[in-house]
Design a binder for these strands. Structure first.
Lengths: 111, 111
DNA sequence: TCCTTGTGCAAGTAGTTGTTTGCACATCGT
DNA sequence: ACGATGTGCAAACAACTACTTGCACAAGGA
């Protein structure tokens, strides 16, 4: 996944409304924007914008059905974001481990 | 971790410069802002702003040493972000699994 | 004691984000 | 055919973000 795509995923998830939308779509399956906006303190248009941000990140897709548009969670891109974090975490652990080894290999200071 | 903290972590990681800063600090250990700005196409002040964003997310901390301020990676908050993603992913998998079960339980259509 | 270097603060600017309102259009059920 | 409902587009706005420049201050080394 390109850096830009990773940008979009992290940016999309940095907003609590958007995380909530993803959670709900994951738990309950597809919904329309109008439906999703019913229990959120904002207009349908605001929700649509959030869904578009999620769509740009590949976390959601839209499917037209008659006059309705159903949004569905597509959480695959989460895997790339998790991979970046785990990789970073692992490198950090390795570095800690190296430091620990150096400390242990150092001769005791005279006392 | 509160939602706000999760906001800050995801927002901090949504910028490629900041991911790069974290990576470098994780790989090489502490550096000053001036040092970090040397191989980035922006001023020291811009780097300081990025480091502050990372600091707000708890991904970096600062320690004064004489006239220098060394920034160090503290990747613990990554764990919470990963947890949110894995939890969401798992729920999605469960939902998929439920659907699959339903599909498998359905009698074959006549052909 | 200078000169260099690392830092901190403040103001300013350009661009982006989150949200609303208003209106036009499409579709469904009666 | 008509009213209710779901959608799309565009303008407007405040708030925020990413940067820059300029300057003052602190600390280390010759």
């Amino acid at each position: 996944m390109s850096g830009d795509a990773l940008d979009a995923v992290f940016a999309a998830l940095s907003d609590p409304t958007r995380r909530r939308l993803v959670s709900r779509l994951v738990r309950e399956g597809p919904h329309t924007a109008t439906d999703l906006s019913r229990d959120l303190p904002m207009t349908r248009q605001a929700v649509v914008h959030h869904l578009q941000a999620l769509g740009d990140a590949g976390l959601v897709d839209a499917h037209r059905d008659g006059r309705e548009v159903r949004y569905r969670a597509t959480p695959e891109p989460l895997a790339d974001a998790v991979a970046w974090m785990l990789d970073t975490g692992v490198r950090w652990d390795e570095r800690l481990q190296r430091l620990r080894t150096q400390v242990e290999a150092r001769p005791r200071p005279p006392r």
